[in-house]
Amino acid sequence: PYGEIADGLWLPRGGMYALVQALQRLAASLNVRIYTETDIKQVIPDGRRCRWVVLPDSTAQDFDAVILNADAPAARERLLRDVPGAPRLPAMTPAVLTFYIGLRRPPGGLGHHTVFMPQDARTAFRDLMAGCRVPPDLPFYVAVPSLTDPTLAPDGQATLFILVPLPLPAKCPASGADDLVGFGRGYVMRRLKRHGIEIVEPDILFETAWTPRDWESRFCLHQASAFGAAHTLRQIGPWRWPNRDPYIRGLYYVGASTVPGTGLPTVTISGRLTVERMLHDAR
């Protein structure tokens, strides 16, 4: 991408979550009240205008405008049941299996970013996108962010992030199998060892994994797709899911499946565009 070539890759000091914390501080400075761990059961319009948000205790609160940052097609499908006018459900990007590991020492042979490609990339990516099976030779991505920002791990130790793309579970039951974590972990460790990168069990101080179903439930993702709607020709620019609902006034969407697209910088721009449109409509 042009941005990476022209400006390089950037990491917020304190890691990616520092961006969330910065936005939280900004919101607090503007007297925004944030409720955490508060699920939304339903959004109820009044005619063609967004009106009420139903909370877990079944109480409904009245709002002038509602911005949904759950994945747009999932939010429309789950929170606005039986409400007409939804855009066509998009083709989605793959699901992911992710590992978060704390290491006693930095692993040799890895930089901040390392991508491992399969021998037959064409077949592997066709399997991932078509969703028919888990490719036997998977691509995967490894990050060691503590190499760039040492504050992300205790002195002398390291943080390791691994992302393995998988077909969507709705199309490929193997992506939701009970032994998925063991399969993915074993595959990655064997592949690393082939490249002379061995992570031995005594060096692992902490480890957790998120499956596609974990991602789906934590972030209200459509079909467990980790990166939202795919960037196909008919799903970019004016054809992408809009920030402003085309049928219900006062209802807005933000995130990877909406305009302008997937990726962290792009999603951040999506937030700005959504707020600009909401403020324009409020005038």
Results as ranks from 00 to 15, higher is better:
residue 224 A to I: 06
residue 224 A to R: 03
residue 224 A to L: 07
residue 224 A to M: 08
residue 225 S to M: 05
residue 225 S to P: 04
residue 225 S to E: 10
residue 226 A to I: 11
residue 227 F to D: 12
residue 227 F to K: 04
residue 227 F to E: 13
residue 229 A to T: 14
residue 229 A to R: 03
residue 230 A to D: 09
residue 230 A to Q: 05
residue 231 H to D: 14
residue 231 H to W: 06
residue 232 T to A: 12
residue 232 T to L: 15
residue 233 L to Q: 05
residue 233 L to A: 14
residue 234 R to E: 13
residue 234 R to D: 15
residue 234 R to K: 06
residue 234 R to Q: 05
residue 235 Q to C: 12
residue 235 Q to S: 08
residue 237 G to L: 14
residue 237 G to C: 05
residue 238 P to F: 09
residue 238 P to K: 14
residue 238 P to H: 08
residue 238 P to I: 00
residue 240 R to D: 05
residue 240 R to V: 01
residue 240 R to H: 04
residue 241 W to Y: 15
residue 241 W to M: 11
residue 241 W to K: 00
residue 242 P to Y: 10
residue 243 N to V: 09
residue 243 N to L: 09
residue 244 R to N: 01
residue 244 R to F: 01
residue 245 D to W: 08
residue 246 P to I: 09
residue 246 P to L: 10
residue 246 P to N: 09
residue 247 Y to N: 10
residue 248 I to Q: 06
residue 248 I to F: 04
residue 249 R to W: 01
residue 249 R to S: 14
residue 249 R to D: 15
residue 250 G to L: 03
residue 250 G to R: 00
residue 251 L to N: 01
residue 251 L to R: 00
residue 252 Y to P: 05
residue 252 Y to H: 02
residue 253 Y to L: 15
residue 253 Y to I: 02
residue 253 Y to D: 07
residue 253 Y to S: 14
residue 254 V to I: 06
residue 254 V to P: 00
residue 254 V to S: 15
residue 255 G to E: 04
residue 255 G to M: 09
residue 255 G to N: 04
residue 257 S to R: 04
residue 258 T to F: 07
residue 259 V to S: 12
